[in-house]
Design a protein around this nucleic acid. Structure first.
Length: 893
DNA sequence: GCGGACTGCTTACCT
DNA sequence: ACAGGTAAGCAGTCCGCG
């Protein structure tokens, strides 16, 4: 064997492929040259000041993992290259003896050697011997379209095996994990945490003050088992350690295109970059402008601290921008992956800049930096979990303008003219504002966005670049992978989990869904005073914890566990060993509920600390909210439908039990949805009895979430209005709050809301009803005499789910309008918002820009007004038709 | 040819 | 590329209607 390997090795030496040639050379000449000119790469020195692990990647030239460390005092990035000799690998159930028969494997250029390893197989529930196939290059394992080691093995082995074997019996594990992630797991490194360099090694820095907190947290959780406490401690350490200030620059570029409505193709980069704005945390504020023939100076004023610089040469301008990109540890853009950085890179090369002088690493789906860390805010804010759970759905369009308006009250500057027609100062002002908004989006609430990314990097063990670009299922997958590696557990393949644990057993209510979900209690219509809303904080994560759910524990191998059945399903759960998911998600939930949430409101703490704790609890919330759903998503690498199904089934069981119990205690339940109960005028005694019973019998906490002065229900589920003690109003699900309805109707609805907020007693309702009738009547009359201020107030605003051509089954109204817009040459894609009004003539819709007042179909709007208000009116005992003054006879006609 | 009953599609919401 | 459940409006289809 040793003999053979030596031969193979010399074969590689003798005939290197072109591809391998460049890969194999460490620190090429280009890097050496760069090092002379701008001290690149910036190698981390011994005794480097404490620095944050912000990124890791595989450096193909060096053939090693590269860790980027951010030193916050100097505001610089330092590089640390692996010096442990760690190599890429995958695992297989074939023995070394068998594998040696596979010629294509042994002769593979990237193949290095075999090792024997012992792992715990989580599906077989025992230890197994596996062979580790070690490679010289991560791409040799997987990642190339053809001829990768992970594909060769099942392809070739059946041909050379002594005994018949099918490709399905041949297992390859852990071959799809990115190499730098694999490295992070194996070396137990913690992205986002603070490191020092001692004896050339990366050493996690320990801070006395923070360790004291960790100890304090451990003492808080008296009821936790030792095993649980280990997980709590691990999470607590990751979350407690402080965050730095982020030295960073936001960048925005403008390109001079002949067609202003179309985005120029960055791959061609055919048109000049004529303005670039830079807005940095260290007060550098610059606008770089390209000099052009016949352009006027203009008289727009920029803030005094902005330096406006003119360039005669576009190349010089771009080089000035590149100097900034070689300098800042963090670069912020809005859509820089697909546009700004990509365009800069290609344009520079078109103008003759050498690739090695371009500070941008252009990838297929992203653009990273050779020096620092690029955060593309578009990708971050596009993330649905971030949008909904971190920012409470406050922005809707993922545009700089809409996010800016919603989160920081800043909007883009608008000009009537196209960019090419602006004066220098107009252009400067426009471009500068974009950079300013992008920067401010990372600055508000104590650099919330930067810190969220940092905390998520810690939870998921991912580089900040990746965590800001990928979805919540990757974050969850990665921390589960990390824990598998840490414990020597084989990371199972998705198809093996599915084969071992099977699919679901319940029938969903909604056609096309995989299993039955939550219960929604039929509401009791009417106005109800003094309504207490009780809920289970993080019900599903709690269930995962208490019921020990995970892909290993569900339908486990022990016969004695079969009796531990999940209600309403044929599934059972292990009683002998805790599942990783249960421990990880459970401890994260406990930390959020019992530590971070209270800490974020604790009066004794400084505002800075409260804000930090609030960021942590927000990040954890995002993870917890998705922690059940991922098991039911077939795109998730640890997809396990019975786990998701069991979680939902236990949720149904839980709320059903509470319903019965509440009835026994004589409490009227007005409504409930999934994990909540709306109780009519309960006594303190009744509430505490219900709480105690839940704690004892179900091992779950049940809290009073809020108390409504009164709540209004119709007969519709997921539709209600509640007025809190302080007069603020919760509106749930009602058409009046949906964002696609015309502003005209929304305004009337909001007026009604304001009026209802003032109602304190049942007696107050008499006058309120009269006032509300007046609001509706007024709205109706104005519609009738076409007395709206602006036609756009009548526009419906509906998001295109797909490109207009792709609607083949039906043509909804907003698609009809979209197709009309397209005729006028404007491009539309999925995600665009379509504004249209309803008109009398076919096809009954018109884009708002093309419509006139007189063609509006008033009756359609009155119908919409009617249905919007009906949702509240019938509970108040009012009738729309009576309000607008129709007699019973007139209604007939 | 037209309208009502029905189903299915689509979006926006709730937990 | 987290899940399922609900409401609403409209598009399209089928069927009866002399």
């Amino acid at each position: 064997m040793a003999q053979r390997r030596l031969e193979d090795f010399s074969y590689i030496e003798a005939k290197p492929s072109k591809e391998n040639e460049s890969k194999a050379l460490p620190l090429t000449e280009t890097i050496a040259k760069e090092r002379e000119t701008r001290a690149f790469p910036p190698i981390a020195p011994e005794n480097l000041q404490p620095s944050y692990f912000v990124s890791a990647t595989y450096d193909g030239k060096a053939g090693k993992v590269l860790v980027k460390l951010y030193e916050p005092v100097s505001g610089k990035i330092y590089f640390w290259y692996d010096n442990t000799g760690h190599m890429p690998y995958c695992l297989t159930n074939l023995s070394q003896y068998d594998l040696e028969k596979i010629d294509r494997l042994i002769k593979h250029l990237g193949f290095d050697h075999f090792e024997l390893a012992e792992k715990f197989d989580p599906l077989l529930n025992n230890n197994v011997k596996v062979t580790k196939i070690v490679a010289r290059d991560p791409l040799a394992i997987g990642g190339r379209p053809k001829g990768c080691i992970r594909d060769i093995i099942p392809e070739e082995f059946p041909k050379v095996s002594d005994t018949p074997i099918s490709p399905e019996q041949i297992k390859v594990w852990e071959s799809k994990i990115k190499y730098y992630q694999s490295y992070i797991y194996d070396r137990a490194l913690a992205p986002g945490m603070i490191y020092e360099i001692k004896g050339g090694k990366l050493i996690l820095k320990s801070m006395e003050e923070t360790e004291k907190n960790v100890k304090c947290i451990k003492e808080t959780f008296k009821d936790a088992t030792d095993e649980e406490l280990q997980f709590i401690e691990q999470w607590a350490r990751l979350l407690e350690y402080p965050a730095p200030k982020f030295r960073r620059v936001a960048l925005d570029i403008e390109v001079l295109t002949p067609i202003p409505t179309r985005m120029p193709d960055p791959r061609e980069a055919a048109y000049p970059i004529f303005c670039v704005s830079l807005y940095a945390s260290d007060r550098q504020r610059r606008v770089l402008l390209l000099k052009r023939e016949g352009v006027r100076e203009g008289n727009e004023r920029l803030p005094a601290d902005v330096s406006v610089e003119y360039f005669n040469s576009e190349k010089k301008l771009i080089e000035a921008v590149f100097d900034v990109l070689w300098n800042y540890p963090f670069v912020i853009t809005f859509n820089g992956d697909d546009f700004d950085l990509r365009y800069l890179a290609y344009r520079a090369m078109n103008l003759g800049v050498r690739k090695s002088e371009v500070p941008i690493e252009v990838g297929r789906r992203n653009c990273l930096l050779k020096y620092g860390v690029h955060i593309d805010l578009y990708k971050f804010f596009f993330n649905r979990s971030i949008q909904i759970y971190a920012f409470n759905n406050r922005y809707r369009d993922v545009t700089l303008d809409d996010i800016g308006k919603a989160l920081i009250k800043m909007e883009k500057i608008r000009f009537e003219k196209s960019l090419g027609e602006l004066t220098y100062t107009e252009l400067a002002k426009y471009c500068f504002r974009d950079a300013e908004i992008a920067f401010t989006l990372t600055n508000f609430e104590d650099e919330l966005v930067m810190k969220l990314v940092l905390v998520l990097a810690r939870i998921s063990s991912m580089p900040m670049e990746d965590v800001s670009r990928q979805g919540v299922s990757r974050w969850i997958r990665n921390f589960l992978h990390r824990e598998h590696r840490k414990r020597g557990i084989l990371i199972p393949n998705a198809e093996d989990i599915l084969a071992a644990k099977g699919k679901t057993a319940t029938k969903a209510i909604i056609k096309g869904k995989k299993y039955k979900g939550a219960i929604v209690v039929e509401p009791i219509p009417g106005v109800h005073f003094n309504v207490s809303v009780m809920d289970f904080p993080s019900l599903y994560p709690s269930i995962i914890k208490v019921w020990n759910l995970g892909y290993q524990s569900i339908l486990c191998q022990h016969p004695e566990c079969h009796k531990n059945l999940v209600p309403d399903t044929p599934h059972w759960v292990c009683t002998k060993k805790r599942a990783l998911e249960s421990l990880l998600i459970g401890s994260l939930r406990d930390l959020r509920v019992e530590w971070y949430k209270p800490k974020s409101k604790e009066k004794g703490l400084s505002a800075d600390l409260r804000s930090w704790y609030n960021i942590i609890q927000g990040a954890v919330k995002v993870i917890l909210n998705a922690s059940y759903g991922v098991f039911g998503a077939d795109s998730f690498d640890l997809y396990c439908p019975p786990v998701a199904e069991a979680t939902a089934a236990i949720g149904r069981h839980t709320i059903t039990q509470i319903l019965t119990r509440a009835e026994q205690l004589g409490i009227q339940v007005l409504y409930g949805d999934t994990d909540s109960l709306f109780l009519k005028n309960p006594s303190k005694e009744q509430i505490s009895q219900l709480s105690k019973w839940t704690e004892q019998e179900l091992k779950l906490s049940l809290d009073v979430d809020k108390v409504y002065r009164y709540a209004v229900f119709s007969q519709r589920k997921k539709n209600y209005l509640g007025v809190l003690e302080d007069g603020s109003v919760d509106v749930k699900g009602l058409t009046g709050k949906k964002r696609h309805i015309p502003l005209f109707i929304k305004k009337a609805f909001d007026k009604m809301k304001e009026r209802l907020a003032k109602v304190k007693t049942p007696a107050d309702f008499e006058q309120a009803k009269k006032d509300i009738s007046e609001i509706i009547r007024d709205c109706y009359m104005r519609l009738k005499r076409r007395g709206w201020e602006n036609l756009s107030d009548l526009a419906f605003n509906v998001v295109l789910g797909e490109e207009p051509e792709r609607y083949t089954k039906t043509t909804p109204q907003h698609v009809k309008a979209a197709r009309i817009i397209k005729e006028s040459g404007i491009e539309l894609k999925a995600g665009d918002l379509i504004s249209f009004v309803k008109v009398v003539k076919e096809p009954h819709v018109k884009p708002v820009e093309l419509a006139t007042n007189s063609e509006v179909d008033i009756d359609k709007y009155i119908g919409y007004l009617h249905s919007t208000f009906d949702q509240v009116l019938d509970a108040l005992g009012l009738d729309f038709d009576e309000i607008i003054g129709l007699t019973k006879l007139e209604r007939f006609m």
